[in-house]
């Protein structure tokens, strides 16, 4: 796990890039509306969801390409190592270095835009869990289109992220109206763990297929 973290940390473009893009979107989005209009808050939620979706795609695009092309996966399989563990560690590294900072930035910007003005911790965890769900789904997409261009993976995987977006929408509403936001957070946390495990197992199966 540490080695994956270390490897990802060396490639600054791969982890700093998504964070910068996210902050740019967050800053640039009010420019399209006049600053004093009331619907700044309501439109903020949809912008937040869409930019999370996009960032999940950017950060997971080609996450396995490098190890696939230079033969590390082949060597790992021949040594009897498990692909599932490799995928698991890679995704954990990207959660720590990309998803969590983005959740933090998302929270700060939603406070700045007045979308969230209470139970900040719950909101932070909620955004982080949604990031985990979206990242593991798009990692599955990038495993499908390992060296075939990412568009193929995104098309086949985007429908799976729809329920996650609906769940997250409900979560944001419950945050602002402060009704049952705790159990929605638990629901989000549960689904994120299950999605993460299932999809990293699926990624390892698909990568094994590509190697044959």
């Amino acid at each position: 796990m540490i080695t994956e973290l270390f490897k990802l940390f060396q490639r600054t473009r791969d982890w700093l890039g998504p964070i910068l893009i996210f902050t740019m979107i967050m800053i640039a989005f009010p420019l399209s509306l006049n600053i004093y209009s009331a619907d700044l808050i309501s439109s903020f939620e949809s912008v937040l969801v869409i930019s999370l979706l996009m960032i999940a795609f950017i950060s997971c695009d080609g996450i396995f390409n490098e190890d696939f092309l230079d033969g590390s996966f082949e060597m790992l399989i021949s040594e009897g190592g498990s692909l599932f563990q490799a995928v698991f560690e890679k995704l954990c590294a990207s959660f720590v270095l990309i998803s969590f900072p983005i959740a933090l930035a998302g929270l700060l910007f939603s406070i700045a835009n007045g979308a969230i003005n209470q139970n900040y911790m719950i909101a932070l965890l909620g955004i982080f869990f949604v990031n985990i769900i979206l990242n593991s789904i798009f990692a599955f997409g990038s495993a499908i289109s390992l060296n075939k261009g990412a568009i193929l993976g995104v098309i086949s995987v985007l429908p799976f992220s729809m329920p996650a977006i609906i769940l997250f929408g409900r979560f944001l509403d419950s945050i602002s109206s402060n009704i049952s936001s705790i159990n929605l957070l638990q629901l989000l946390g549960g689904t994120s763990i299950i999605t993460f495990l299932i999809f990293s197992w699926l990624c390892s199966r698909i990568i094994k297929l590509h190697i044959e």
Binding site: I144, L152, I155, S156, L158, P159
Partner: peptide
């Protein structure tokens, strides 16, 4: 569902 069918065909 329609998008999932299209995705299946393109893949």
């Amino acid at each position: 569902l329609f998008i999932m069918y299209l995705a299946l065909l393109t893949v």
